[in-house]
Design a protein around this nucleic acid. Structure first.
Lengths: 337, 337
DNA sequence: CTGAAAGCGCTAACAT
DNA sequence: ATGTTAGCGCTTTCAG
């Protein structure tokens, strides 16, 4: 790796001082037009660009924000990252993306890593294994702005951006009822996550709306991976009196359920209606196409970044704010009996 | 953002010099055990961690590698990023991911951005719009190691990692023939990309293998997005004598074709066999499930990173090397008549 | 065994 | 209008 050209190099070449070069490059009024021109021309020729390390050291800022997602490969997260990145780039920030792989230990590690890297702010969604939230103490102590998205915690201390989980689940439940389902089941996510709790709450509210009883056997829990979800789906299908409608905490879970249902020769939606959550890109490619709750993922990412960048701008530590974005029920084939 | 504790802070607190602290922290033999202990304990207590900006400035290295992908949201790329990230993390490197959004202009911009950031190396896959490769001159001039993956150029100057495109396409074509197809069509990608050219070449070789004539009307070109692919698929389906088998340059293209085929009430695979390329995660969820060429994406990512990191380690500029990884034809329902 | 000093690249007072 | 100096946090000679 060749040395990048520095102010010193330019200064030496022109026989002027480093500060003159520095000033000329920012069009400081003190510098004579001729010198200024001469310097700017040489700088362009030599492809000078300021060393961000030196700048960062001086200004004590890296212009970098860190992102921790449970999993990069999922469409939901990569789309959010997309939104974050575009917003950050607009403001001249770099984004370092790390993945917790849904592991609490790895998440702690990522936090530490990003802090060591001196990121100016963090945007994250907690892992499904995260039950203890004390690793965010360091972030608070160091006064690093942090924004949670989707899966949140300590919301009185940190800003966050979530979707209207309760309303969305309620809407799904009502949709099931309106399309003729009576035994509506829900495959919930890990009990510690807000998204799980809220979606369960919406589910129960929806049942009330429809004057349907809450049947405990129709609420099963699953982790957010395929094998765990398949297990959960089997539990539902093996019930003496199985459900005629199922929605899951996310699309992954529902894809697994769909596979299991098809395997058993049960028809979707005639025998069982199916609704997903998150509207993964491929929801429309499966057969039957999957009714799902569409998340404005890109917007969530860019809004999270906006929230963070606003906090970075303000010297005053702003009070944590909560943004709730609305989802949309996209009705496809899997739920219309 | 609070100031991180520095060596100076520790030194002041203990009444020793900065250099003593610096040495103690790296267990320099000169330092007396008591002082060493004292310092290490305080450092841990104050959660000292070296400032990477200062280190970078001193050592002229950022321990950062830059990645440019055409699109973060596609499973193929995010999985590769995953592999890169894990490998980089093992070696203590940070990864900055940027996206060209399949645009040549944006790609140039990303290169410049990453160079300005002083990344130590770059891993990238050129955008579908990229026809001119002179923007990589800067990279060469600055002696920044760069590794291309999947879509490559200037392979005598830069290392790269690709899949056995020709063999894979040839295999698909033979598979079609063996399963009873006679009019085999191919939806190719942009003509400038090596992946398009090589897959076309494999297609033609496969036709020869099967003693099938090459029919120009069965080779159509498409960009790598849904609408362009839909248009290409229509062209094939509208032929007076349409194909009985189609494979595309990637899964996205084939998903689009699948949708169009279904829309017309044509049966897959009975009327038209369909094979994808890249084995997107959801290939197995569509109906019928999609036969496809599986790419070892994660491994491609980690191998690309290994290649790059090896070059970073070596002071001597290693000759560019080419890695070809093997793919695997995963036979599912869409091609078995 | 420990400290002082220089320098990585840059900016911003503070001279001249 | 331009140069000098100090300092951001760190390592590494070179002195003691």
């Amino acid at each position: 790796m060749k040395k990048h050209v520095s102010l010193k190099d330019l200064a030496n070449e022109l026989g002027v001082s480093i500060s003159t070069v520095s000033r000329a490059l920012k069009n400081h009024p003190d510098i004579s037009p001729e010198v200024c021109d001469k310097i700017q021309i040489l700088a362009k020729e030599r492809k000078y660009s300021p060393n961000p390390l030196a700048m960062g050291l001086l200004k004590r800022q890296t212009r970098t924000i860190g992102v921790i997602v449970p999993d990069i490969v999922t469409h939901f997260y990569s789309s959010i990252i997309n939104g974050i990145e575009d917003e950050a780039e607009k403001k001249g920030y770099y984004v370092v993306v790390t993945s917790s792989n849904e592991s609490y230990e790895k998440e702690k590690h990522c936090i530490q890593n990003l802090m060591n890297l001196r990121v100016e702010g963090i945007i994250t969604c907690i892992s499904q294994d995260t039950n203890d939230y004390s690793h965010f103490d360091t972030v608070l102590e160091n006064e690093i702005p942090l924004v949670f998205f989707d899966r949140v915690c300590r919301t009185s201390e940190f800003s966050s951006i979530v979707v209207n989980n309760i309303e969305a689940s309620r809407q799904i439940t009502n949709h099931f009822f309106q399309t003729g389902s009576k035994r509506i089941a829900h495959i919930a996510g890990p009990a510690n996550l807000n998204i799980s709790k809220e979606r369960i709450e919406g589910y129960k509210l929806g049942l009330e709306d429809c004057n349907l009883p809450f049947d405990e056997s129709l609420l099963v829990y699953s982790n957010l991976d395929l094998s765990s979800a398949t297990f959960a789906a089997k539990k539902l299908l093996d019930l003496p009196y199985p459900p005629d409608a199922v929605f899951g905490v996310n699309d992954t879970v529902v894809f697994a359920a769909m596979k299991e249902i098809k395997k058993r020769g049960i028809r979707i939606p005639q025998d069982i209606s199916l609704v997903g959550f998150t509207d993964d890109f491929h929801a429309s490619f499966v057969e039957p196409s999957l009714t799902s709750i569409e998340h404005p993922t890109y917007e969530m990412g860019s809004k999270a970044a906006q929230l963070l960048l606003r906090q970075l701008g303000n010297e005053a530590v702003a009070a944590p704010s909560q943004i709730v974005v609305n989802t949309k029920l996209i009705i496809r084939e899997s739920s219309v009996k």
